[in-house]
Design a protein around this nucleic acid. Structure first.
Lengths: 119, 119
DNA sequence: AAATCATTTCGTATTTTTGCGAAATATAAA
DNA sequence: TTTATATTTCGCAAAAATACGAAATGATTT
């Protein structure tokens, strides 16, 4: 008997990564750190986005817990940067996921003419 | 005076996409539809994952609302498939986001030696 | 030691997500 | 028309995410 299946490690890992990126503030943070190609303090970020400092701090914490960024204490600042090793892993997983669909053939049920029974 | 900034369209769009993919069941659904290169009913999916039928239906609905999949009624089934146009858009956004970090130079604050003050 | 600065944590409230089983819907088969 | 099949929606409950301001932390300057 097919005992209850589990989610695969891949599915859980990918969901963990996409979940970490599932808020505009967290997209912004990663975007900023990638573009900078360096570090940034929360004080340098707060001016760019419409949330309170404490809320930004929460989002930073979530990204830290997801392993995508890391902080370095440099009094009186905390400089955040991409956790390079983990980010590369995340990129690999996401790219693997995205490349799955290629090449996209035409045996898809989405036919040429729009169907009326499409929901 | 810098009036309160908004999140950019890009940040919101990317967050919407990653949020749609932020649950293992939804990763599974997309994975399945991409690999199949075709359509699939919810009944063909339910055996693969540890959730109830009604819960799967919820996840399908979410992916549908995010625009990533679409359903086609073919009695007595409903066949789901990737919403190709929107998926391609999603891929573009994600790839743009991911490629931002390349090439990754060494002026990153993550120095060679592990720092003790890394948090 | 007191004041200052950058940032996080705490306490709390609100909203959203996730989940299930039961009931509803819609179609096909008997 | 009754029955069976496939799937969704409803009603509810529990858990998680989001948000803010106030207070706490830790280091530096005065």
């Amino acid at each position: 008997m097919a005992s209850k299946p589990k989610f695969t490690q891949y599915q859980s890992d990918l969901a963990r990564i996409t979940k970490a990126l599932s808020h505009p503030a967290r997209v912004y943070i990663i975007e900023k750190l990638l573009m900078l190609k360096g570090c940034c303090t929360s004080g340098e970020m707060i001016g760019d986005i419409p949330i309170a400092r404490s809320t930004l701090s929460r989002h930073l914490k979530e990204l830290k817990m997801a392993g995508l960024i890391q902080g370095e204490i440099e009094p009186p600042h905390i400089k955040y940067c991409i956790n390079k090793a983990n980010w590369i892993e995340a990129e690999k997983l996401l790219n693997k996921f995205l490349s799955q669909g290629h090449s996209y053939p035409e045996q898809n049920c989405q036919t040429e003419k729009p169907k009326k029974n499409t929901i």
